[in-house]
Structure formats: structure tokens, C-alpha cells
Design a protein around this nucleic acid. Structure first.
Length: 492
RNA sequence: GGCGUCGUGGCCGAGUGGCUAGGCUGGGCUCUGCAAAAGCUCCUACAGCGGUUCGAAUCCGCUCGUCGCCUCCA
């Protein structure tokens, strides 16, 4: 039987601001949409945190037996840099600066994006649609919204009429904003544009002569507004109403609010049942952001080439660091924080590498069923990975006790124990055991031989030789561990 | 200014109205030839002020502060 039938998953819904029991529209199937990157530069670690958080969600849903269609877009056009005036799209601007074709920029950074997410061991989404591949769909939605009288055309551009929408609907339902406040606050800004009201947002922008990325439409040669692509692609692949919509906290307003307004106008129904928002990664006390230059790239972490960290950290250690915080919490990125996480990560992986050394006994002195349930309870509580990891460290303690024969475990329990650990660590959290990669059978053989020689030396009380073997191996990154049952080693 | 979030011990981070996660760091002990590893153990907590309650870090109010959004942003 599928696990989702016996597990009650609760998800914090940004729309209701409470944890709600998750019930998909179609039993056993989940439709999930996550706002992807704008590919005009390298993804930084803050971006990666969001995508990794939803990768974890994706993985756990799959672990529970759901069939998940996970759609994550690539924004390769239509992302207005400044929607107050002429409207130059980010991609086009970057291309002009670098004297290359816009699609060359898109290609380069899309490849970088995929490469980075692969390193951090994210699974690819089911569908990864692009904005430029869905211009037709977006134009159709604009026509529909115009027909319904909730948009207007000015000089070849089309804007969504937020105030009119708000007469019958609630613009602000997600972000908790009141439109009256918004009006009051923007009155002092000059906002001299074509828009009737500053709150209105672009559905279609007319391109000026120099603008390279452009498409024909009934209104002008131009490009779609940023918010529109997500409405178009989510409804196309997941339906008018789907289960989960995710994205970074900073997209809640205006992006997601606009999405709701567009989709609701277009289809007449609420587009999303569960809105999930991943919180920000903080560096030097402030949000990581490309625009302010306050960011670190994943490759700079993996290579150690940066001014922030004391050394290089592996992708799995970095992933583990981020999973030790709840996805809804702000996380501070620091060198000491990463160092602490790396040690914990290594401890966990060493325990997993030792699982095979455990011998089953007649009965269990530790309660495996209860431990396993605690792991599921943690994840069922809005994907509480910090608590799951705390339980995994409890398992590390069990492993060490079992190896030292201070505890016993039945054959059945041992099987459950191993399966559960592997499922949560590798399938759900998406970690890799990087420790094992260097240790081939040949290496093991050589080290075992040296351990034997050291054992003889120790029996002869030849401490000089035994310490020489131990210390020189340590310099190579091979640590010897003397226990009651003999000496083992680990490779770091 | 508006909206939202959060404020937990040396650091990072969970958490339920009473039984006080976990990781890292520091101290002690056991084991050990020594060390490491491992096990056991100790030390500092719930921003402040009121209130509700037999009892609150956990509920309510106020104050202070943080961060985010309000313009592109994961």
C-alpha cells in the first residue's frame, strides 16, 4: 500500500497562514509548480536554496508514493527590468552589454543552472517549460482578460486593471495587502506612465526599435509581462486548479498575487490549493541578491575560491547545511555554520558506512518502530527536516551502540533500520555519501594491511612504528579508529 | 509609513501550556600505551514588560529589535 494512505501530511499554506492537511485534487497524484530562475546570470546560493527546498518536497511526495508532475519554468523573456517606463527586458539588456544574442545568454545560464542543481543533487522536474515557448498561450490569455474587461490597451501595451479586479475579487488575498494602503502609499511617487493606476501591471509590453526580443501580437510587436508566463504554463500543464505552487518568499508580492488575479480572471477559479513559500538565505545580515552584489555562487563554495568561507565545502555538506534549517525560516549563511554542518554530515555518513558491520541479534534493545515513526512524523509536519535530521543523529547513536555491542537488534528490525535510514538520507534529503567515493577495494586492502602491521607493532609495544602508521595515514586523510572489536578506518 | 516574518543557551537551529530536540564548540569521566573515535556527563535559554492560568519560552496585549516585501529579485 502506498505510504500516503497511512501518513497524514500537513503543509503550511501561505494563503491561509496555517498548516493544513494535504489532500490532492486527484488521489495519488500531485501537480506542483515552482517559479524557476530568470536566466540572465549565474544562479547564486540563495536561488539554489529555494529550488533545493522544493526538490526536498518533490522527493518526499514521491517517497510517499504520489505520482508527482513537477513543473518548473525557465524565464527567458518578458522579465521587465523596470515596468515604469520604456520597458527593457533583462535578457535583452544583458545581451547588448555583452554583444551577443539574447538566446546565447539564455543558453549559457540555463546550462549553468542545470549544472549547479545537478551538483547539489536536485532531481530534474517533470516539465521545464520556457516563457519564449509559450508566447501563443500568453497572448490567448491576454485576449481573454481584455474580453472580460479587466485589462486595457495603451499605445500597444496591455495592462491588468487591478482596481477593477478588486471590485469583485480580492487583490491581496495572498500577501495580506490592502489595496487602499497601496494606493495611499504610491500617491506620492511620480509614476508617470501609461498605466491608469500604479498598481496595474503589464500583460504585454510594446518593444521599442532597439529591442531585439520581440513577438507579434494583436497590439504591437513586443513581449509578455513577467507574471503572465507562470499563469500560462501552470494552467497548461497542471490544469486550471492544481495542488501546490511554490516559490521564494520574495515572489509572494507582487508576482504571485498577480498570478492569482490573472488566472482567476482567465479561468474563473482559484488556481492553487496550497501556496508554499521558501524563505531567504541571508549573507552578511542581508538577503542574497544578484542586484546588490551580496551573494555567493555554489561553485565558489565547492572550490573554496571566495572571501567568505575558511575552506571549500562539498555540495552535500552545503545541502546538509541548508536542510538543517526549516525551509520557512530565514537562514544565515556563515563559515562557522557550514563548518559545524560539515562535521555533522561526516558523522552521519560514517555511521551509514558502518551499517553493514552491524550483526543482528535475537531481539532488539532499541525501539526501531518508534524511531521510524518519529522520522515520518517530522516530515509529515510541513517537511520539518531539522527534526528529521535530529532523529537521524539518534540513529547514528544507535549504530555506534550496536557496533560496540552495547545494544542489540533483531534481523527484522535491522532490515527496517537500514531501509529507513537509506530512504530518508538519500531518497528524501537527497544527500550523497561523498566519503565512499575515494575508497576503492584496493585502498581498503592496503589500509587493512597497514592496520595489521600496526597491530603487530602495538603488541610488541613498538609505539614509534604504530604511531608513524597512524599519523601518516591521517595526513593522507585516512583516520584510524581503535575500538573494542579492533581497528576500523574512514576516509575523509 | 503599510503588510508580513521572526526574536531560544558560546554558535546554528527544533519545540509542546506542566515531563525542557538535535548538531557544532567548551569542561569532566570511561575506554586507550598515548591520542583519535565511541559512550556517559556538565555548563550557560527561551528579547523586555504586563495579563490569562494551579502552572507559560509555549495563549493574549504592549514595547523594543531583526529580516523580507511594498521597484527587478528564489
Amino acid at each position: 500500500m502506498e505510504l500516503f494512505k497511512t501518513n497524514t501530511l500537513k503543509i503550511y499554506n501561505s494563503l491561509s497562514k496555517t498548516k493544513e492537511e494535504f489532500k490532492p485534487i486527484v488521489e495519488g497524484k500531485v501537480g506542483m509548480y515552482v517559479c524557476g530562475p530568470t536566466v540572465y546570470s549565474n544562479v547564486h546560493l540563495g536561488n539554489v536554496r529555494t529550488f533545493m527546498s522544493f526538490d526536498m518536497v518533490f522527493r518526499y511526495l514521491k517517497h510517499l508514493g504520489y505520482k508527482v508532475r513537477y513543473v518548473r519554468n525557465i524565464t527567458d523573456a518578458g522579465h521587465l527590468e523596470n515596468d515604469a517606463d520604456a520597458g527593457e527586458d533583462r535578457i535583452a539588456k544583458k545581451a547588448r552589454l555583452e554583444q551577443i544574442e539574447p538566446m546565447e545568454v539564455v543558453q549559457r545560464y540555463t546550462v549553468d543552472f542545470h549544472d549547479t542543481l545537478q551538483k547539489i543533487n536536485n532531481l530534474p522536474p517533470s516539465i521545464e517549460p520556457t516563457a519564449t515557448g509559450h508566447i501563443v498561450e500568453q497572448i490567448e490569455i491576454i485576449k481573454d482578460i481584455l474580453d472580460k474587461g479587466l485589462a486595457y490597451e495603451v499605445n500597444g501595451s496591455v495592462y491588468f486593471d487591478v482596481l477593477k479586479y478588486n471590485e469583485t475579487e480580492n487583490y491581496g488575498i495572498l500577501s495580506g495587502r490592502k489595496i487602499e494602503d497601496s494606493i495611499h502609499n504610491t500617491r506620492t511617487l511620480d509614476g508617470q506612465s501609461e498605466k491608469k493606476n500604479p498598481q496595474d501591471f503589464a500583460l504585454w509590453k510594446k518593444a521599442d526599435e532597439r529591442h531585439i526580443m520581440r513577438w507579434p501580437s494583436p497590439w504591437s510587436d513586443g513581449f509578455p509581462g513577467w507574471h503572465l508566463e507562470c499563469s500560462a504554463m501552470s494552467s497548461k500543464y497542471l490544469g486550471e486548479t492544481f495542488d501546490i505552487h511554490g516559490g521564494g518568499m520574495d515572489l509572494k508580492f507582487p508576482h504571485h498575487e498577480c498570478e492569482i488575479a490573472q488566472s482567476k480572471t482567465n479561468n474563473g477559479v482559484n488556481p492553487v490549493n496550497y501556496w508554499m513559500h521558501a524563505n531567504m538565505l541571508i549573507l552578511n545580515g542581508q538577503k542574497m541578491a544578484k542586484s546588490t552584489g551580496n551573494f555567493i555562487l555554489p561553485n565558489e563554495i565547492f572550490s573554496g575560491e571566495n572571501d567568505i568561507l575558511s575552506k571549500a565545502f562539498s555540495p552535500s555538506a552545503t545541502r546538509f547545511f541548508m536542510l538543517q534549517a526549516n525551509y520557512r525560516s530565514i537562514l544565515d549563511f556563515t563559515s562557522t555554520g557550514l563548518e559545524a554542518s560539515e562535521k555533522g554530515y561526516i558523522k552521519l555518513m560514517e555511521a551509514i558506512s558502518s551499517l553493514d558491520k552491524i550483526e543482528a541479534g535475537k531481539e532488539s534493545t532499541i525501539n526501531i518502530a518508534e524511531w521510524k515513526q518519529k522520522c515520518y512524523d517530522a516530515m509529515n509536519d510541513d517537511f520539518n527536516t531539522p527534526v528529521l535530521i535530529a532523529n537521524l543523529f539518534e540513529a547514528v547513536k544507535y549504530v555506534n551502540l550496536l557496533i560496540e555491542k552495547k545494544a542489540t537488534i533483531s534481523a527484522e528490525d535491522l532490515e527496517v533500520f537500514k531501509t529507513t535510514i537509506n530512504a530518508f538520507v538519500f531518497d528524501v534529503l537527497g544527500l550523497k555519501n561523498e566519503l565512499q567515493q575515494d575508497s576503492s577495494d584496493k585502498l581498503s586492502g592496503v589500509v587493512e594491511m597497514l592496520i595489521g602491521m600496526r597491530k603487530d607493532a602495538r603488541e610488541n609495544k613498538d609505539w614509534a612504528l604504530s604511531d608513524k602508521i597512524r599519523d601518516e595515514l591521517a595526513e593522507l586523510g585516512i583516520q584510524l579508529k581503535d575500538g573494542k572489536e579492533g581497528t576500523t578506518f574512514s576516509v575523509n
